[in-house]
Design a protein around this nucleic acid. Structure first.
Length: 427
RNA sequence: GUGGGUGUAGCUCAGUUGGUUAGAGCACCAGGUUGUGGCCCUGGGGGUCGAGGGUUCAAGCCCCUUCACUCACCCCA
């Protein structure tokens, strides 16, 4: 049809949804400030290698989902598919890490992954994320999850579930993965096609398979707990105890596996139980104690998460029984003739200079048409100005909702105090 | 990358076994009320029927190709 279209999976946003976005972002900023987080903004373009090293070479994100481009000097760049690696890069590069103090940062911005779009999944999508660097103790795991939990409540999200799991330290995870490989290998021919791949590529993922038969097979699979050392077990226990202490409901999901390579120990997801279709993770994150070092920084433990703004907005939209009523101008000036038009156009300027949302039709047309328009755009008050009113410098101000009218001088200040009388503006 | 569904007016959708100028509701504009909105009445504008090809005397409808959107899988926020 039309030749001009947005790139697939990249959506335009209009006022209707942006009012929700603004509310969401504002509440997020205020909420995170309570916890002492500062904002960080990093470029959307990064060197390709950052994510290859950060996210993991074998991950789908790196293997097939990145927008890669070549700079004019031949350097391989990409649009960031996630932000944690970039935030780490920024702090390492600018020497923001210090050995003895923690660092907390949050970000809000667009990410890019070239996947097939579906409900709650776009190629350009937006995330809110937060990271804490420098503390290995589970108090951080707890605090960040509580912060996210409370943010969701603050935003009015309902029917959410916090799912948590532990993946152990890398060595523990590797030995668990190999045990899983051994276990599932004996049923190799019974596994679904995807799981046959997973057996080679990432045995942990088999635990997450949706096929009923694979689900049956995994019932007797080895459990992660048997491969964790005492300190990892203790870490997880403290996380659970801390969440309970903060009255945050959660569910331990041993099948919960995260897709990015860098996670260690605690991982979690906030799942929407209704309203999002198949892409039901609103937020996800976990601990990544090895990432900073692997990106060339000092050995620094870290914990963080990211949340999908589109998904949150979808939920908010579905949970809202009715949208906020459209708010129009405080006053619309309607003109009846040429002299009235000149007076109205001058007056509308004066009113706007006094911070009044005033409005007048751009087109020169009938009073009736202007009135209809005033009604359509939900003008709170209307004032009809013609030659007679212009010469007397007085006109009726009518409250649209009730039809009640009072006369006012055609001077900004008088109109403003009359607006207050009608309760349209507080003086 | 794989599979399903859907493409007709700005929006939501009708459109018979293929039949002549393609419809409705909503929205928009004008008039009914020579200067007052909503309700009502009358009229009006607006369509390459997603695109290309084929079959046919004749295609919105049948066939092929293609594109877009959408949902799901893989994966993920």
């Amino acid at each position: 049809m039309s030749i001009l279209r947005a790139v697939k999976g990249m959506n335009d946003l209009f006022e209707e949804e942006l009012s929700t976005w603004r509310m969401l972002e504002q509440k997020t900023r205020e909420h995170f400030a309570l916890y002492g987080f500062g904002e960080v903004r990093t470029p959307i373009l990064e060197e390709l290698d950052l994510f290859v090293r950060g996210v993991g070479e074998g991950t789908d994100i790196v293997e097939k989902e990145m927008y890669v481009l070549e700079d004019r000097d031949g350097k391989r760049l990409c649009l960031r598919p996630e932000n944690t690696a970039a935030v780490v890069r920024a702090f390492v590069e600018n020497r923001k890490f210090s050995p003895d103090t923690e660092l907390k940062a949050y970000y809000i911005g667009p990410m890019f992954r070239r996947e097939r779009p579906q409900k709650g999944r776009l190629r350009q999508f937006h995330q809110i994320g937060a990271e804490v660097f420098g503390i290995a103790d589970p108090v951080v795991d707890i605090e960040v999850m509580v912060m996210l939990h409370d943010l969701c409540a603050l935003l009015g999200l309902k029917n959410l579930k916090l799912a948590i799991n532990t993946l152990g330290q890398p060595e523990e995870r590797i030995s668990y993965a190999s045990a899983l490989r051994d276990y599932f290998s004996q049923f190799q021919d019974q596994l679904c096609e995807d799981c046959k791949r997973r057996l080679i590529k990432n045995a942990l993922r088999i635990l997450d398979c949706k096929q009923p038969h694979c689900a049956t097979l995994r019932e007797k699979a080895p459990a992660i707990a048997d491969f964790l050392r005492q300190d990892s077990l203790a870490h997880f226990e403290k996380v659970k105890a801390g969440l309970s202490e903060a009255s945050v409901q959660f569910e331990v999901m041993p099948r919960l596996v995260r897709g990015l390579d860098y996670y260690t120990r605690t991982v979690f997801e906030v799942l929407a139980e209704t309203g999002l279709g198949a892409q039901n993770a609103v937020a996800a994150g976990g601990r990544y104690d090895g990432l900073v070092e692997s990106l060339g920084g000092p050995s620094t433990p870290a914990f963080g998460f990211s949340a999908g703004i589109e998904r949150i907005a979808l939920l908010l939209q579905e949970q809202q029984t009715h949208g906020p009523e459209k708010s129009g101008p405080d006053i619309t000036l309607v003109f009846a003739d040429q002299i009235g038009e000149r007076t109205a156009r001058k007056l509308v300027t004066d009113l706007r200079r006094e911070k009044i949302a005033a409005d007048v039709d751009y087109r020169t047309r009938s009073v009736k048409a202007q009135m209809r328009r005033a009604d359509r755009i939900c003008a709170k008050m209307v004032m009809v100005i013609g030659e007679r009113e212009a010469s007397q410098m007085r006109a009726d101000m009518k409250l649209m909702a009730t039809g009640e009218a009072k006369s006012a001088n055609l001077v900004a200040n008088d109109i403003i105090s009359m607006l207050a009388t009608f309760g349209v503006r507080t003086p």
